[in-house]
Amino acid sequence: MTRLPGERLDRRPAAAGAPADRADPADAAPLVGVLALQGDVLEHTRALRAVGVRPLPVRSVADLEAVDGLVLPGGESTAISRALGRAGLDEPLARRIADGLPVLGTCAGLILLSDELVEDDALPRPGGIAVRTRRNAYGPQTASFDVRVEVAGLDGGPMDVAFIRAPRIEAVLGDAVDVLAEVDGAPVAVQQGARIGLAFHPEVTGDLRLHARLADLVRRRTGR
C-alpha cells in the first residue's frame, strides 16, 4: 500500500510497541473512502477507522465506485478541484453524490460540496449542499483559530475544533439544509440529507462524533 503523506516512515507493520497507523479493519464493516488527491487524508483515514468503518484512499474511479460513503478532506480546494478533473473523477463524484452517497466534507470539502461560491463560483466541484460559501473568509493564517462549538444533536458537550483559513457559509439556500452549528452567527456545520459539510476540522482535534454520524448514515444505507 502506498504511504499516505504524514504517515509513519517505518512501514514495518505492527512493529513491537509501535502505534499502528493501519490497524486491521473488520472485513464486514462498510468501506468509506477519503478523497486522497491532496490534504489531510491521513487524519480522516484514522478517524474513520476509529469509528469502526474501513477507510479507503480514493484516487481513481474504481476506488470511488467501491465505497459506501466518502470524506472530502481538508486541503486546498483549488488544488483538489483541479486534481479531480485531471483524474477524471469530477463527473463520477458528482453523480455518486447526487445519487445519495453519504458524504462528509471538512473545510475544502465543504467548499466542494457548496452549491454556490462567493467570488469563486467557477471552481469545478460536485456541490450537493444548498449553501453559498466564501472561501478563506476569515483572513490570513494568523486569523486561524481553535474554538469550542455546540453541535445540534451531539451528546457529550461542545466540540473542540480548529478553523484553518476556513470558509464561511454566508447563506443557506433552501429548506433541505439543517444548520447544526453556528459561530458568530454564521453556520459552520450543515447537513442536507446524507451530506454533512463543516467549515472546521474535527479530524485535526480528534473529536470524531461527526465521523461517527457519517458512519451511521453509511450503515443505514448499506444495512451493514
Partner: peptide, 12 residues
C-alpha cells in the same frame, strides 16, 4: 493551528 495549515498542504 500553526501545524494544522501544513497538514492541509500535504500531498501538494
Amino acid at each position: 493551528v500553526k501545524r494544522g495549515l501544513a497538514d492541509m498542504l500535504k500531498g501538494g
